[in-house]
Structure formats: structure tokens, C-alpha cells
Amino acid sequence: MNVPLLLVVAWLCLGLESGLSSSIPGQPGFVLPLAVLVALSAAPGAALWTCLVLGLCVDLLTMRMHGAGGALVAVPGPMAIGYLVAGQFVLALRGQVIRRNPLTLLALSVVGMAIAQAFACGLLTARHLAHPEFEWRPLAELGRRLLSALVTGPVALVMALVLLPLAPMFGGGGGGRRAR
């Protein structure tokens, strides 16, 4: 795996997610398609760690309101776990799909984002139950996040034009058995 290239692309995707996502109706994700691509291309261990770290970066960039005073705190964990589960889902399916097809990235990004957001919602709901001062509306947020998963599809399709040519550099020989 070309780690420096992955870091640069991840940096760009995090910047896009941070600066652009809230301005687009539905708030699509720009980091998850990258995580899906890595999960399609890389060795399983590297793919899972990459998904975990990307999700953790998204958590650190997301401020959540706590208390009537509106204090803003980053909660690490929900999206990290969500991205990890989404990555595991892609790993389980990657033998069955055409990896270099943009539509594959679209479909897996939509489903992967839905899985990631569902897990994140579950953890955040648990946080709300444990700490009522955490501002959280479970059903409304779940609906909003599932919509975000749908809107992530077209974004993934556009990103596929740039990311798919780079996929071999993220692979590092992953996705198949190594010759011994």
C-alpha cells in the first residue's frame, strides 16, 4: 500500500467532507468512498485499520452539542466503529463484485454509509441514554443519516473517476492469496 498517497488523498477527502458536506443537501460523505475503495483493494488487516482511522478522523472533526449551554465536544468512536463495520462488509463482498466498476463503488458506498451511520447512531443513542445532557434526537438523526447515505452514492460515482485509477496503489497485493 502506498501510504503517503493514501494520506494525501485522505487529507483531501477529509477537507472536502469538512468544507463541502454541510453545504450540499443531504450532507453526503466524501471519506467513506475512499474507505470503501481501500477495503476493495488492500489486504484485510490494512483495510480495517484504514477504515478505523478514517472514521476516527471524521469523529474528531465533528462537534456535538452537550448541555443547555451548547458546549461543543468531539466524541471519538461512533464513526470509527461505523466505518470499521462498513469496511468489514466490503471485505466480505469484494470477491463477488467487479472492483474496477464505478457502479460498484457507488453501490457499496451507499450501503456502507448506511451501515456506518446506523452503527454510529446506535452508539450515539447509547451515549444520550447514559448522558442526557448530550443533545441527540435518535429517530430524526437516523433518518437524516440514511438520507446522507443515499446522497453519498452520486458523490462516490464522481469520486470513482479519480480514485479508481489510484486503486492499484492502495492495494499492495490485497484481495487475493499471496504466492508462497
Binding site: 474528531l60 452537550h66 468512536g77 452508539l123 448522558h131 445532557e133 448530550f134
Partner: peptide, 22 residues
């Protein structure tokens, strides 16, 4: 990470540094 997801807010305030760095 699961533990941090449900950790008290005062614990998470100590993570302000990494969040600011990101």
C-alpha cells in the same frame, strides 16, 4: 473506542487537543 463513545463529557474535553489538531 466503544468506551470513549459513552465516556463522560469531562473525559472527552481532554481530547480537545487532537480535535483541534485535526
Amino acid at each position: 473506542l466503544v468506551g470513549l463513545s459513552v465516556a463522560p463529557t469531562r473525559w472527552l474535553s481532554a481530547l480537545g487537543g487532537p480535535a483541534d489538531a485535526m
